[in-house]
Design a protein around this nucleic acid. Structure first.
Lengths: 233, 233
DNA sequence: CAGTCATATGACCGGTCGGTCACATTTTGG
DNA sequence: CCAAAATGTGACCGACCGGTCATATGACTG
């Protein structure tokens, strides 16, 4: 955790440092990110930086905390629908909110992504701080969905969590690619109505595929799909 | 491309250098990976390294090439089923072969992954060398699947490619997690029969979800799913 | 044997890194 | 108003980086 001195800093200065740090860790992984560069960009002396933060790791973990806090806050502010609306409608909201967050705060998304999928010396420590917030959240949703009968009970919870959390996260890459925009453009510009509807169509199709794939099927038991007979190599 | 000198090296020495390089680029991103360390691990002088490779980028692009070649070779050697078998059965083979590759050569997988999802100075150059081999391959499969009527024609090709290539890749993380093994253990040990069947069940469930979700549905048109009505925020 | 040429080597270069510290400056409060 | 405490600063440290190069070593040719 940053020093008390840091939190007593004028709001603008403190936020400036954090912004520069976020930008740096978004474009470089933990080892490559440069404290010297952060200090230069934030227009503070390097010595000052080390009066706020014990070391590089201290700053990094603080950024991870900030990112998860910010994501949770954003989700709460996005007015999640009542869970009575049903699992897949809720899921659609989740896709939308998550994508919006990733587009508004692409750097935070990038940092969290890197925290998950690259090998830090203290990888475990980071996972503890972020795990609950993402896949744990989706896991609860899935369990509810099964209890309510929205999701077919034969679907393994962990598999469903895997599919959903993977897709939720990867929309961040897919949507800019489909809209022929760089993520940066998408983040800055206001979305044109055309793009908005295009994005909604993606959400719609994705939810439809998932609902057909995992939803409680009207026909009671199609026990074995035509192609899932075990085939060893 | 490495120098001719490099290719004239004794097989063992050349492969040793490549192995060390792969290990290094697997645990560190492009900037952090250290040529000095590769030379040290491979027990050659740094000067020798620079007689084989023009620079760091030269080595890196060579590794990318090797990785894609190796993956293609592995797939061909895995005896792909006839495409007449149907899209989803083929998909199951693809899941299996891809997961096996990732578990046998985790470092190569890691390097390619990083090439895709982190920001190199020459990101475009890398994508050109790998694009065809992964999502391009899946895209062709999807198109065939639609033509044959295995996949519902209302499913957007790019969305299907997105879903499939994302899941194919992420199985690499999901399966070790489900089996409570580290990827390293999974890569080294022979799989127990229990684990084998567990993995096959994962493939089976995954294919089933996808087949129900994207497959040509027996009912002609369920035009609007219960939850996909557009809901703006 | 000598001479030539490809290859191997590690000291060395300029630069950047994370982190420190003696000192300058500002803020505090009695 | 001044001393003491808090905060700001950038030169400096040892380590390591990618890359170079003069030189050493060995292998081929005549």
């Amino acid at each position: 955790m940053p020093n008390a001195t840091f939190f007593n800093l004028p709001e603008a200065k403190r936020q400036g440092i954090i912004d520069c740090a976020i930008a740096e860790f978004a474009i470089a992984d933990y080892d490559s990110a440069s404290i010297s560069n952060i200090a230069k960009q934030a227009k503070i002396a390097k010595g000052s930086f080390y009066q706020y933060f014990a070391d590089k790791k201290d700053l990094y973990l603080h950024l991870i905390d900030l990112a998860t806090q910010q994501k949770i806050a954003y989700f709460k502010a996005s007015r999640p629908p009542e869970s009575e609306i049903g699992f897949f409608a809720y899921l659609r909201w989740l896709f939308r909110a998550s994508t919006q967050f990733e587009l508004i705060y692409p750097a935070l998304g990038q940092i969290v992504h890197r925290a998950f999928y690259s090998d830090l010396p203290f990888h475990d420590e980071v996972l503890k701080r972020t795990q609950m917030a993402s896949s744990g959240y989706i896991r609860e949703l899935v369990k509810q969905g099964i209890d309510r009968g929205d999701i077919d009970a034969s679907v393994d919870v962990e598999l469903a969590v895997f599919i959903l959390s993977t897709l939720v996260y990867r929309l961040r890459d897919f949507i800019p690619q489909q809209l022929d925009l760089t993520p940066a453009q998408l983040a800055q510009d206001q979305l044109s109505p055309d793009n908005r509807t295009a994005i909604e169509q993606i959400f719609g199709q994705l939810v439809r595929v998932l609902e057909q794939g995992m939803g409680r099927s009207p026909t009671p038991t199609p026990p074995q799909s035509s192609s899932s007979q075990t085939q060893t190599h």
